[in-house]
Amino acid sequence: MKKWLIAIVSSMVLALAANAAIEVHEFDSLEQENQFKELNHTLRCPKCQNNTIGDSNAELAVDLRQKVYEMTKEGKSKDEIVDYMIARYGNFVTYNPPLTFATAILWVGPLFVVIFGFGLIVVRSRKNRVKQAEQAGSEWSEEKEAQLKALLDEKETGDKQ
């Protein structure tokens, strides 16, 4: 009997802990509830980075969900809530940040680096080819030409004998 009592008390304690983790929000209308759910899935948690505030269990995400809930209950529109979050946490809080100079650098920068690097490789390889051609041309002198003719003459006379 004692074992059963301990099992029941343990399960009740675990049930209370699980119940405490569930957030319950009541809304005045279905539109408010839909707006809250949509914002929970479109705003990014600044701490977790790749989780939405609805998916994250971080304290900051819980606070953001509560703020979104309060603003939704106050009758604020989706754009007003998103603007508030951007003003407070920056463009990072949205998954689709607007195109600004800073975000343009993030998108164009790597492309520029690849093009610049490829161009640098092409220019250096062409310079090396020209340098090698010049060295080959400058190393060939009349003395070497005479040596080559002498070798060829020796070979021709050696073959005929």
Rank of each mutant, 00 (worst) to 15 (best):
Y89D: 10
Y95P: 03
K144I: 01
K160P: 15
Y69L: 07
G54T: 06
T103V: 00
S10Q: 00
Y89T: 05
L151M: 13
R124E: 04
T72H: 02
Q49C: 14
L64F: 12
K76S: 15
E156Q: 11
Y95L: 00
A102L: 11
A17L: 08
A21M: 05
P98W: 05
I115C: 10
I81H: 03
K67H: 02
I22M: 14
H41I: 12
A61N: 15
P110C: 02
W140Q: 13
C48Q: 02
Q132W: 13
V93G: 05
E33Q: 07
Q49G: 14
K47L: 14
A18P: 00
V93C: 09
Q135M: 04
F118Y: 08
A18N: 07
N57I: 12
K144Q: 03
L16P: 06
F92G: 10
M12I: 14
F36Q: 07
P46C: 07
V114W: 04
N57W: 13
L151N: 14
M12S: 10
N50I: 14
V122N: 01
K78T: 09
S77E: 06
E70N: 09
M12P: 12
A20S: 13
K144M: 03
K78A: 09
K144S: 03
A136H: 12
V113K: 06
I86G: 06
R65P: 13
T157L: 11
N50R: 09
Q161F: 14
R88P: 08
D55R: 00
T72M: 02
L151W: 10
V123G: 10
A146S: 02
A136G: 08
P98G: 01
M85G: 11
N40A: 10
M1D: 12
K78Y: 08
D28P: 03
T103A: 07
I6Q: 04
A20L: 05
G137H: 07
L5F: 08
V123S: 06
A21P: 10
E145I: 05
K3W: 08
G109T: 15
N19I: 11
Q35Y: 11
L152I: 11
L16I: 12
A146R: 02
D79Y: 04
T72P: 05
W140L: 09
Q161K: 11
A21L: 09
D79R: 15
Q161S: 15
S141A: 04
F92L: 05
A20C: 07
P97Q: 01
L16D: 03
S141K: 06
P110R: 00
L60T: 13
E33G: 05
K2P: 11
L30F: 06
L151G: 14
A146N: 02
E23N: 12
V114K: 09
M85T: 02
V108Y: 10
